[in-house]
């Protein structure tokens, strides 16, 4: 049976409408991105196809897509769009990107936007885990092979991969400590400052946090709730030509499942289209009923 696209759209519409209002309050502008991009190695995800001897991607990852158009100026944008994950299987996302930001204010701004989005959608039971790639890189050093193994171990959450590596016991102990660190206090100043400023009990420092995309630079985060078994979303900071940027994406389906608001906007009931037209011109919500 085909899914009920109208009922799903109703849920997505409600969440999107609330999100647009919140993004506007934060002074973010909506960006409308093309569905198809010429293939570019910087673009992630999306469905690859060939047309007239050229390669293209349908609905790629939005952060990498926005970065294609990034100019040097400071930019705050949000989007609501579908992303294809290397196949015809898509996921609707809403998200934001802040291009050319500054440490640590951009991190605080992004995390505050996420919290305000979730709270205003009446989603109170959520957590945000924040991690750092730099902390791992500092511990690993310049050893690319070790880095690959450590990140594989993090992705699988399998410390045995690290245990079998030819590295000192001391190094393994340090990595084990990071692997299992989950709390609010850390020696890594940047992360500690972010968490201290936000001062929210739903935010944890978890160095075991990993993100599936390779462009992140240091701070990464994941948003989840114990009410659903998969992530609400995630994001992190990245660099475009050395300039600092940060972004996040939230799963629209997860938001619509968790959003509890039952508030229905009061609409003026009218019985003819001329009256409806004049009310709409004055931004009054209307519902037209047949006589």
């Amino acid at each position: 049976m085909k899914k009920d696209i109208f009922s799903l759209s109703e849920k997505f519409e409600k969440v999107s409408k609330e999100a647009r209002e919140i993004f506007n309050l934060w002074n973010y502008r909506e960006v409308f991105l093309p569905s198809i991009e010429a293939f570019n190695p910087h673009l992630r995800k999306g469905l690859k196809f060939a047309y007239n001897n050229k390669f293209y991607l349908i609905k790629p990852d939005l952060t990498s897509q926005v970065s294609l158009y990034a100019k040097k100026k400071n930019l705050r944008v949000f989007y609501i769009s579908e992303v294809l994950k290397d196949s015809v299987k898509g996921e609707w996302q809403l998200g934001a990107e802040l291009l050319n930001g500054k440490d640590i204010s951009m991190h605080i701004e992004m995390l505050m936007i996420i919290i305000s989005l979730l709270e205003l959608m009446n989603i109170k039971e959520f957590y945000i885990d924040v991690g750092s790639l730099q902390v791992w890189k500092n511990e690993i050093g310049e050893n690319k092979e070790l880095e690959e193994k450590v990140f594989e171990s993090l992705r699988k959450r399998n410390f045995e991969i690290i245990e079998t590596l030819p590295i000192s016991k001391n190094k393994k102990e340090n990595l084990w400590h990071l692997f299992n660190f989950r709390g609010r206090d850390t020696n890594y100043e940047k992360l500690k400052n972010i968490v201290d400023v936000l001062n929210d009990k739903r935010i944890f420092i978890d160095f075991g946090t990993v993100r599936p995309l390779p462009y992140y630079n240091d701070i990464i985060f994941e948003i989840y709730s114990s009410k659903i078994g998969y992530y609400i979303g995630g994001g992190g900071d990245y660099l475009i030509n050395g300039r600092k940027c940060i972004g996040f994406g939230l799963n629209l389906k997860a938001l619509s499942l968790l959003s509890k608001s039952t508030k229905k906007e009061k609409r003026t009931v009218v019985h003819n289209y001329r009256e409806a037209f004049s009310l709409v011109k004055n931004h009054t919500p209307i519902e037209v009923k047949d006589e």
Binding site: N180, Y224, S226, G229, Y230, Y231
Partner: peptide
């Protein structure tokens, strides 16, 4: 195998 969210919400029990 472990659910990625359970690893976070039931951290001590799963570990």
């Amino acid at each position: 195998i472990v659910n990625r969210i359970s690893q976070k919400t039931k951290f001590d029990l799963i570990n």
